[in-house]
């Protein structure tokens, strides 16, 4: 999938400015940058949630699905988990049950969770449900917008592992947005750095982390917290 010259304007303000980025099939492309740099706006544009100019080539509507940052706000509190997961599934009633089970097992959740309400689930479990729901539409591209930043460290790792497994098993393409470079380095093949709505650097993870070219990328790398380094 190729994002070509994508621009999003809110009135006179340009939130995303002429971004061109390729997400090759089966790869995870990381998008980093501080908040307000336009990451979420880009994600929403690619997902068809905000109007944009430019082109998205190689992925139709419904073929792009997004997973949101806050797993507490992205599931309808009054809808059972099974019904939420089934929302993107276009199958007969009976087949849908089976499909929901399959989707839940893809994200390593037991099938009996289908009958529960989101409030009975932990944050990590909710985020898995949100991922299962997105997978139900069999997307060409999964947009993951800060999907671990609302989670505790103890479950963050499991969700990151899941993203990598899904890529390995399903050949899923992912646009993975995060402010945390250590996380992005761990899951992504390619890293794109966004600053004030513009891409300042794109390269393989090794290139960007190992020999950053843009000054802003170096500043971001500097800002990564390290245990016991004061």
């Amino acid at each position: 999938m190729i994002i070509k010259s994508l621009t999003v304007r809110f009135g006179a303000f340009t939130a995303v400015d002429d971004v061109t980025l390729e997400v090759p099939p089966g790869s995870i492309v990381g998008l980093v940058g501080e908040s307000g740099s336009g990451k979420s706006t880009l994600a929403r544009a690619v997902s068809g949630l905000v109007p944009y100019t430019g082109e998205i080539i190689g992925a139709g509507r419904r073929r792009v699905q997004m997973v949101f940052q806050d797993p507490y706000a992205s599931l309808d509190p009054r809808m059972r988990v099974g019904a939420s997961v089934a929302e993107g599934v276009r199958l007969s009633r009976a087949a849908r049950r089976v499909e929901v089970e399959r989707l839940l097992s893809l994200v390593s959740l037991p099938a009996e969770l289908a009958g529960r309400y989101p409030r009975e689930l932990s944050g990590g479990q909710r985020q898995r449900v949100a991922i299962a729901r997105a997978l139900g539409a069999r997307p060409d591209l999964l947009v993951a917008d800060e999907i671990t930043s609302a989670l505790d460290v103890s479950v963050q790792g499991a969700v990151l592992n899941l993203v990598r497994e899904l890529r390995a098993e399903l050949g899923l393409s992912v646009l993975f947005i995060s402010h945390d470079l250590a996380v992005v380095r761990y899951v992504c093949d390619v890293i794109a750095v966004l600053h004030r709505g513009r891409l300042v650097e794109v390269g393989t993870t090794d290139e960007v982390v190992g020999s950053p070219r843009a000054a802003y990328t170096r500043a971001l790398l500097e800002a990564v917290p390290r245990l016991g380094r004061r």
Binding site: S47, G48, L49, R61, R62, V64, Q65, M66, F68, D70, A73, S74, L75, D76, P77, R78, M79, A83, S84, E87, G88, A130, R133, A134, G136, A137
Partner: peptide
């Protein structure tokens, strides 16, 4: 404006169903 409604829209859930399944109960 809720994220779960945005998710339903992305999944191509029809407008009427968004109203009955998400908006009205909440």
């Amino acid at each position: 404006r809720a994220d779960y409604v945005a998710a339903a829209r992305m999944l191509g859930v029809p407008r009427r169903r968004v109203l009955t399944a998400h908006v009205l109960p909440n």
